[in-house]
């Protein structure tokens, strides 16, 4: 069984287009266990009952941004070990440094090709 059959991923993005694009790309890689939510609080709530291996989250979201979500994940007993990839439109040094501090596993700058996303994920979890 390949990793892609087992891995569970949660996509967090306030823009449904982005959620659709990432889910679509993951689907093309053969990753089928993908959940998505439109904001950080819903993601945290969903993760309470259904944990995932990897969270792929947008940075710029209303309310709770991607880094705040990361911080909340890292402080939760159940979620502190989850993989976290930040999708950002601007790889601002301040943002990336903060991410690093919070234990971000990787980041991906928009726009990206599906193969970039795959490489980014595989750098965190290994070959899909």
């Amino acid at each position: 069984m390949a990793l892609r059959d087992q891995i569970r991923i949660m996509v967090v993005d306030d823009m449904s287009t982005s959620r659709g694009l990432i889910t679509q790309a993951l689907d093309a890689f053969g990753v089928r266990n993908v959940a998505s939510t439109a904001d950080g609080p819903s993601a945290l709530k969903a993760l309470e009952s259904t944990p995932v291996h990897l969270v792929i989250s947008d940075y710029n979201m209303p309310g709770m941004d991607g880094l705040q979500l990361l911080h909340r994940l890292r402080s939760g007993a159940k979620t502190k070990g989850v993989g976290f990839i930040l999708i950002t439109g601007k790889a601002d040094k301040a943002i990336i440094d903060q991410g690093r501090k919070f234990g971000m596993n990787n980041f991906l700058k928009k726009p990206f090709e599906p193969k970039d996303l795959q490489a980014c994920i595989e750098a965190v979890v290994g070959r899909l």
Partner: peptide
């Protein structure tokens, strides 16, 4: 801006 090369991905 930080490029991907500047960042060391963390394996899970």
């Amino acid at each position: 801006e930080v490029t991907a090369e500047d960042f060391q991905p963390l394996g899970v």
